[in-house]
C-alpha cells in the first residue's frame, strides 16, 4: 500500500510538472511577446518595456523557467497585470463559491441519480427502464448552459421566484441558498443522467454475483435485494467517478457562472480573458489542475485502501 501511495503521489507531481511546463511554453508559442498580448496592439513601446520587465520576460529563458517553478512552489502564481493583486489571493477569494456550487450540484445529482438507477434496476427490462434510459441519455446530452438560460428565463424573469444574478448576500445564508438553486440545477442535471446509468450498469453486474443469488434463494424480495445488498457494492465505482466529477464540474461551471453572473473561478477566468490578463488566466488553469489532481489522487488512495486489487492497476 505504501509503495502504491508513493507511486501514485509521485505520478501526480510528475503530471503537474508536465502541465506547468506546457503552460509555461505556451507563452513562447505566441507570435509576438506576452506583454504585447496583454496590452494590445496600440500600446506604447515604453509601457510594453515596463510590463515586460515587471513580468520578468527580459531575463534569459532558463532563469524564467526556474523562477516560474520556484514561485509556483511557494504559492506565488504571479500578479494581476492591471490591479497588481496576487493571483492566488484573487483565486482563493472566489474559489469557495465555485466549490460550493460544485458540491451542491454533485450532491443532489448523486441522490437523484442513485435513486433513478435503483428504480431502473428494480423494473429492468420494462417500459420504465427504457424510459429512464432515454431520459438519462438526454440529461447527459443537453448542454448545461442552455438549461441555465432556460431556467433563468422561466424561474427568474417570468416567475420571479429566484434571483437571476450573483451568489447572494454575504452572511445571509437564505439568499445564498436561493442563489444556488438554479445554477446547481443546471450543472447537476447532466450528472443525474450519468450517475443513474452508472449505478444501473454496476448494479446489474453485482446482481449476478453469488451472494446475491444466495440472498434471493432465501426468498428476500427483489426490492430488498437491490436496495440493501446490491446497492452497497454498486456504489464503489460511483465514488471513483464522483471524484473525477468534481473536477470536471468545477470546469464546466464556467458557462453557468457566466449566465448567472455568479462570482467564481469561471467568472474570474472569463473576465481575465476579456482583459487579456494573462497571469490570472494561467494561474486559474494551474490552480484548478492542481486541485483536480489532488482530488483524483486522494480518491485513488481511498479506493486502493478499500480494494487491494486496484493497487496493481498502476503497472499497466
Amino acid at each position: 500500500m505504501l509503495s502504491y501511495a508513493i507511486k501514485r503521489i509521485g505520478l501526480a507531481f510528475l503530471i503537474l510538472f508536465v502541465v506547468m511546463l506546457g503552460l509555461f511554453s505556451m507563452v513562447f508559442v505566441v507570435p509576438g511577446d506576452p506583454a504585447g498580448v496583454a496590452l494590445g496592439p496600440r500600446a506604447s513601446p515604453e509601457l510594453r518595456a515596463q510590463l515586460t520587465e515587471r513580468m520578468g520576460l527580459d531575463q534569459p529563458l532558463h532563469v524564467q523557467v526556474a523562477n516560474f517553478f520556484a514561485n509556483a512552489a511557494r504559492g506565488d502564481l504571479g500578479y494581476d497585470v492591471w490591479s497588481r493583486r496576487p493571483v492566488l489571493e484573487m483565486i482563493l477569494d472566489v474559489f469557495p463559491n465555485t466549490l460550493i456550487l460544485g458540491l451542491v450540484s454533485l450532491g443532489w445529482a448523486l441522490v437523484l441519480g442513485v435513486a433513478l438507477g435503483c428504480v431502473a434496476v428494480v423494473w429492468r427490462g420494462t417500459f420504465v427502464d427504457r424510459l429512464l434510459g432515454v431520459l438519462s441519455v438526454s440529461m447527459i446530452a443537453v448542454p448545461s448552459f442552455v438549461i441555465a438560460l432556460y431556467s433563468l428565463l422561466i424561474f427568474s424573469v417570468w416567475l420571479g421566484w429566484l434571483p437571476a444574478i450573483g451568489a447572494g448576500e454575504k452572511g445571509d445564508i437564505g439568499s445564498q441558498i436561493r442563489a444556488l438553486i438554479l445554477p446547481s440545477f443546471a450543472i447537476g442535471i447532466t450528472w443525474v443522467g450519468y450517475l443513474a446509468r452508472l449505478v444501473r450498469a454496476s448494479m446489474l453486474e453485482v446482481l449476478a454475483a453469488e451472494h446475491i443469488r444466495m440472498a434471493r434463494s432465501f426468498g428476500l424480495s427483489e426490492r430488498r435485494v437491490v436496495l440493501t445488498y446490491a446497492l452497497r457494492l454498486a456504489l464503489i465505482p460511483t465514488v471513483a467517478v464522483l471524484a473525477m466529477g468534481l473536477g470536471s464540474i468545477l470546469s464546466s461551471a464556467v458557462f453557468v457562472e457566466a449566465v448567472f453572473s455568479r462570482p467564481g473561478i469561471g467568472t474570474l477566468a472569463t473576465n481575465a480573458v476579456s482583459n487579456r490578463n494573462y497571469p490570472v488566466v494561467m494561474g486559474t488553469v494551474l490552480f484548478m489542475t492542481a486541485f483536480y489532481l489532488f482530488v483524483v489522487t486522494a480518491a485513488d488512495l481511498v479506493i486502493a485502501r478499500l480494494d487491494p486489487r486496484v493497487r496493481d492497476v498502476l503497472r499497466s
Binding site: I15, V19, G22, L23, M26, V27, V29, V30, V37, G247, S248, L250, S251, S252, V254, F255, I265, G266, A269, T270, A272, V273, R276, Y278, V281, M282, T284, V285, M288, T289, Y292, L293, V296
Partner: peptide, 16 residues
C-alpha cells in the same frame, strides 16, 4: 493533458 480542466484550458489558449 487529460487532467487540464477543459474549458479553462480553452480560455488560456484563447488568451494566447
Amino acid at each position: 493533458f487529460s487532467t487540464l480542466p477543459m474549458i479553462l484550458f480553452a480560455l488560456a489558449v484563447i488568451t494566447v
